[in-house]
Design a protein around this nucleic acid. Structure first.
Lengths: 198, 198
DNA sequence: TAACCCCGTTTAAAATAGTAATCAACCTTG
DNA sequence: CAAGGTTGATTACTATTTTAAACGGGGTTA
């Protein structure tokens, strides 16, 4: 039986071993939980066999970890953890919303500084009349938020809604979208996107 | 040859057909570009065969699309975008914080339902004395949040901080962490993590 | 109608993934 | 040191994927 490395670029074996050991599981224990044999896990981790996605899913389900997570990018860096209210990074809205008619009346405060994060959290404040303009489309990922006070009109694709306190949103960043404050009252919200788009 | 559906839950076939047709490619054309046979693509799309990850990768490379993208949230699915305050999904804190001494006094409301999202946004409410317990370590990704009112003690690794209104945090989910409300006042915050861990 | 070109599906053979069992090596504990 | 437990790796054997080549259908053109 010739033994040969099958997928040098797609190192499933290394990744699987990494997640398994991080979970402090033995091959046998993971095999028991996932319903495959320990031999298979050994072969996968040593790249002696390239699993079917069905098998890989069964194994990851026992972690549990999604296939998307498994194939996703390794997060690496660390940095500051806590940020005081006045430490938040103020961001110029005109740098973000290029063609916004009323960008000046938007205040953005970002949690953390590094561009190397997977998650970007913003405190956003929209004065009456504030308008981001229709953003063509940003990068892959998702964007969501939670309205704290006031009202904001959110346009995503051809869907339009006005959200109030306690309301929230979540959408695919690739769809063109726009935020507008139509009311006389300031609107405040907390948003998050992944990965950072600016 | 008995024909049977193999993976009803993990509908690779449907997904692959979706991305292929969106690329305006025929099975044969995609087969030519990826180096597999058109028959295989047909069988995968009809769920008559469950591909190895190696095969799936070869096919996706010809799109091109990463495995993470492929298994990520459906780029096509019509997820809801806006969620009214009372539509938020209430989550049982005991399901999230397994060994929490005071999990019952934590209220969690999630934006969106699907487990297939890249971004999980939560509205969290900690009663006085609430405690998540030290979470051993969750999965890869980042976690961040923004304190709206009250005070919360956040322990990440060996770093301890108490955060108040306007303060925020952001850290690597793999580091053990804990939230505790030491005060007499309710603490409310909005958090986000990527990717979803539950 | 026939001849052609594309499409997606199906079929028998070849290649490979997956199983069950065994192996040697490493800890513990007595 | 020996017994009993664990670990990860390896081996024949079986089940499944994957290939290569057909099949049947729907257009277009002559």
């Amino acid at each position: 039986m010739p033994v040969q490395a099958k997928q040098p670029d797609l190192n499933i074996g290394h990744r699987l071993r990494a997640v398994r050991t991080q979970e402090r599981l033995s091959q046998r224990e993971l095999a028991r939980r996932s319903g495959v044999t320990n031999g298979l896990i050994s072969q996968i981790e040593t790249n002696h066999s390239s699993p079917s996605v069905a098998s890989l899913k069964r194994i990851l389900d026992a972690i549990p970890m999604s296939l998307a997570e498994f194939f996703g990018p390794d997060s690496e860096d660390r940095g500051k953890i806590c940020f005081r209210a006045r430490e938040l990074l103020e961001i110029d809205p005109r740098m973000v919303f290029r063609n916004a008619p009323q960008a000046a009346s938007i205040a953005l405060h970002q949690v953390g500084i590094g561009p190397n994060r997977m998650l970007q959290i913003l405190h956003e404040r929209y004065e009456p009349g504030a308008d981001t303009g229709m953003e063509k489309y940003s990068h892959e990922g998702e964007e969501g938020g939670f309205v704290l006070s006031g009202w904001i009109e959110l346009t995503v694709g051809d869907e339009v809604n006005e959200l109030g306190p306690g309301d929230a949103y979540l959408f695919d960043s690739r769809i063109p979208h726009r935020f507008r404050n139509l009311r006389d009252e300031v609107c405040v919200l907390v948003s998050a996107c992944t990965p950072p788009s600016f």
